[in-house]
Design a protein around this nucleic acid. Structure first.
Length: 481
RNA sequence: CGGGGUGUGGCUCAGCUGGUAGAGUGCUGCGUUCGGGACGCAGAGGUCGUGGGUUCGAGUCCCGCCACCCCGACCA
């Protein structure tokens, strides 16, 4: 037997760790809180990068790269920013054997170093908008880490844009949070709620933070992406002004937005099961594994398997054959299920003689016969599409089945482990903090999707579940990662 | 930072009242197998986290240190 995975029912947290390690997605490193992303895990990140990068370019953004090291004086320029990030920064004090005149912060995020450049690049309204994205690693010295979900160093992308008007900036904030939503739903097959963060949950240095929130299989919430409206905060901190068409000097309006390797954790916790990883076909670098049953005329079986793989690959489906004789077919079935390959094809002598093969889908485990005629590639392609759709559908059904409206605080406290709770809130930070203190639930977001708001009649005024004060509308509470 | 746990072949771990290190799995070779984690035979592989101490003798007992993991408070 290979590694065994703790069942989700028994210990969800241990299941997650067991899965990450036995599917060879990541390993712990010898440095606290850091992980090695193994090829199986990195392949998922590469697929994510490719899809997102295409979407960023399609919305007019370009890539650039800014330095890892940030002078201490930069970090200190924006008051909320330093307050939010300084405690969790790694700081370089020595270089080349000598103490540095100014400490260098290993970037926890790049607003400051980027705005130092933007100040030099922006003089006129003609220089705007400036739409730049960077793929990079960042370091945050978190107190408690968890593979993919929160590591000391992680990979991400961060978009940083500069605009001439607040309206344009806000449009950008919404455009990008919607790009994330599209990516989460169409590629990750993971439904998300879109909305705003409360004052206490927003990004350090932002006027407003938008986010997408997903529900994991243990019914906890995970923030999967954020898009911030930075107002003129960083422009003022870095004295970045431009001359408008009218000739006046004005501060630039800014946004920033990012998603990280945390998405891999989200993907795992949204779909995978006790047998291992379950990957949506669009994010699987290997979509189909062909396992030949090598008996009888072994060579003929192996050749047929390779011919099928070739046919799939030439139709844009990523297929490969495992014809090694070291491991039995049973071993291969289990191994590729662990690795989350969406479709497995079995082909043996008796299939060849009846001109079929057996297809097993990873998400449901269902097996079906596929005809080996000129409809073959189209059948597999349709099967992959069906898997992608059905994964999204079941995740959505799961979220909907675990979203509840509650109207009393007693009910709220009793229901908090049951998923997303929709309840009235008086809008104050005090109440928010009290609820968090007493129930560990936080306000995940103030949803903006009109259909969602309507479904739960979120715009109707009411009474705050905790304070009993008037509430202008409902928000979504949950325990979160 | 508080609480808990663990450091012994690549991995997971066993090792009792101290006597000079073992299993499963993985790995290498050969052969038989192969439609749900097959089997036989033969091999390779360990300064027992680290520094001291007790002892004729320490993986085991004592003291210190280090590291990592898990559960909480903080965060993407």
């Amino acid at each position: 037997m290979a590694d065994t995975i703790t069942p989700r029912e028994e210990d969800y947290s241990q299941w997650y760790i067991d899965l990450v390690r036995s599917a060879k997605l990541a390993d712990y490193s010898d440095v606290r809180g850091c992980m090695v992303i193994r090829p199986n895990g990195y392949a998922i990140w590469e697929k994510m990068q490719a899809a997102l990068d295409g979407m960023f370019k399609a919305t007019g953004h370009v890539n650039a790269y800014f330095p890892l090291f940030i002078p201490e004086s930069y970090i200190q320029k924006e008051a909320d920013h330093i307050e939010g990030f300084a405690p969790e920064c790694a700081v370089v004090t020595h270089g080349g054997g000598e103490e540095l005149a100014e400490k260098l912060y290993v970037r926890p995020t790049s607003e400051t170093v980027i705005w130092a450049s933007y100040k030099k690049w922006i003089q006129s309204y003609r220089d705007l908008p400036l739409l730049i994205n960077q793929w990079a690693n960042v370091v945050r010295w978190e107190m408690r880490t968890r593979l993919f979900l929160r590591t000391s160093e992680f990979l991400w992308q961060e978009g940083h844009t500069a605009h001439a008007t607040p309206e344009e900036a806000q449009e950008e904030v919404l455009r990008m949070i919607n790009v994330y939503k599209t990516f989460a739903e169409e590629y990750m097959a993971m439904p998300v709620l879109i909305g705003r963060k409360t004052e206490s949950e927003k990004f350090a240095g932002a006027d407003e933070t938008w986010c997408i929130e997903a529900m994991m299989q243990d019914k906890k919430a995970l923030q999967a992406g954020t898009s911030h409206n930075l107002g003129q905060n960083f422009a003022k901190a870095f004295d970045c002004q431009f001359q408008s068409k009218k000739g006046t000097l004005e501060y630039v309006w800014a946004t920033s937005w990012g998603v990280s390797t945390r998405l891999i954790g989200a993907l795992i916790m949204a779909h995978s099961d006790d047998k291992g990883l379950v990957l949506p076909p669009k994010l699987a670098s290997r979509q189909v594994v062909i396992v030949p049953i090598l008996r009888g005329d072994k060579q003929a079986v192996a050749e047929k398997a390779h011919a099928l793989a070739d046919e799939l690959n030439s139709n844009g489906i990523h297929a490969f054959v495992d014809d090694s004789e070291q491991n039995s077919p049973g071993w291969k079935f289990a191994e590729y299920e662990l690795q989350g390959i969406p479709v497995r094809l079995e082909i043996g002598p008796r299939d060849i003689s009846s001109n079929i093969c057996i297809a097993a889908r990873r998400d449901t485990g269902e097996k079906q016969q596929i005809a080996l005629d000129d409809t073959f590639a189209a059948s597999i392609s349709a099967l992959l599409d069906a898997i992608q759709q059905s994964m999204f559908k079941s995740a959505l059904e799961f979220r909907e089945a675990n979203t509840w409206e509650v109207s009393s605080y007693d009910d709220f406290k009793k229901s908090i482990d049951k998923g997303f709770l929709i309840a009235h809130w008086d809008g104050t930070g005090e109440t928010e903090a009290k609820i968090k203190e007493e129930t560990k639930a936080t306000i995940r977001l103030i949803p903006e999707d009109p259909d969602f708001r309507k479904k739960y009649s979120m715009d109707e005024p009411g009474i705050c579940i905790c304070s009993g004060n008037p509430s202008k509308g409902k928000v979504v509470f949950a325990k979160a990662y």
